[in-house]
């Protein structure tokens, strides 16, 4: 195994072009586990640890965007992006342990593209874009097109993830994850929701309940239509319980889970419904301003 240590981003991109099978490593919280357990023996490891800009983020209030470097550790997302990216900040809280949160970043979650990655539901709900860079140039991959199969993403072999771009939150966001322990646990299933009042949309993300992270599109469309029809975006009136129930049912139905050692398929469907109902309730209450929901982020 050869260890490539580019000193600059340009060198890194060039190295990836030269060695397309090279596995990028930043915090190492995924890659090292795979190597230690011998699940993976890449010929080249591409260390991104010397490239400081990957660990930086910019919030541009003018354009209303957040550009989040691929290696910004979860602990900093929790600390600094609670307002701009509340869903992702909540998801970051649920990642593993403090030590892992100090090392791991969103780029690793995206690179591994495991359906259980904690960031995915929040990125889907937030409508993120992935900034993929190669010697050929930079392209922005919409998160909806990013997950293409089990642990497969839309990156070309010569591409590296430079950053994730998110619109600064314009409405409440929530994230909820079921694990069989109260901390430091891989998701049995997870759910993210974001209200986008400026475009009168609701976006969702489901983790660990299908071969890839997915959106619950039917649920989103149903909810957007129901909110529109009843004029709720304007009135900020209470959400009819029937709407919340139907939303939950549709989220549940969007999942395509399996039975495994962490949980059963039917439990996952059930739990997604419960999380969908609760997180919708929390976000809508927050939108109404009727009650401040505490996120503890």
């Amino acid at each position: 195994m050869e260890f490539l240590r580019p000193a600059t981003w340009q060198e890194a991109v060039a190295a990836k072009a030269e060695h397309p099978s090279a596995v990028p490593i930043a915090g190492g919280t995924d890659v090292m586990v795979e190597i230690n357990f011998d699940h993976r023996r890449p010929e080249h490891l591409l260390d991104l640890g010397r490239i400081p800009e990957l660990s930086e983020f910019d919030t541009d209030s003018g354009s209303g965007t957040v550009r989040l470097g691929a290696s910004v550790p979860y602990s900093r997302i929790m600390e600094h992006l609670r307002t701009q990216a509340p869903g992702l900040a909540l998801a970051s809280h649920t990642v593993a342990s403090p030590q892992i949160r100090n090392r791991g970043g969103v780029g690793g979650n995206l690179g591994t593209a495991s359906p259980a990655g904690d960031a995915h539901p929040a990125l889907l709900a937030g409508g993120a874009e992935v900034e993929a860079v190669s010697v050929r140039g930079t392209r922005l991959i919409p998160i909806d097109d990013f997950y293409v199969g089990v642990k497969r993403n839309a990156l070309a072999p010569d591409e590296l993830i430079r950053a994730v771009r998110l619109k600064t939150a314009t409405g409440p966001q929530q994230f909820s994850k079921v694990g069989t322990r109260n901390a430091m646990v891989i998701a049995v299933c997870a759910f993210g929701i974001a209200l986008h009042p400026e475009v009168r949309q609701v976006r969702t993300g489901i983790g660990s309940a299908a071969p890839t992270p997915i959106r619950a599109r039917a649920a989103e469309e149903f909810l957007a239509a129901a909110l529109e029809e009843a004029g709720l975006w304007e009135s900020r009136a209470a959400l009819p319980p029937a709407v919340a129930r139907q939303f939950a049912t549709l989220v549940s139905g969007a999942a395509n889970p399996i039975d495994d050692v962490r949980g059963t398929a039917s439990y996952r469907r059930h739990a997604l419904g419960v999380m969908a109902r609760r997180t919708l309730d929390w976000t809508w209450r927050e939108y109404r301003g009727a009650e401040r929901t505490e996120s503890c982020a």
């Binding site: 929530q174 079921v178 505490e294 996120s295």
Partner: peptide, 15 residues
């Protein structure tokens, strides 16, 4: 401040 999720089932998973 609201609910302290650390004291609830699910903890920081915010369920």
């Amino acid at each position: 401040e609201g609910a302290d999720v650390r004291a609830l089932p699910g903890g920081l998973s915010n369920t």
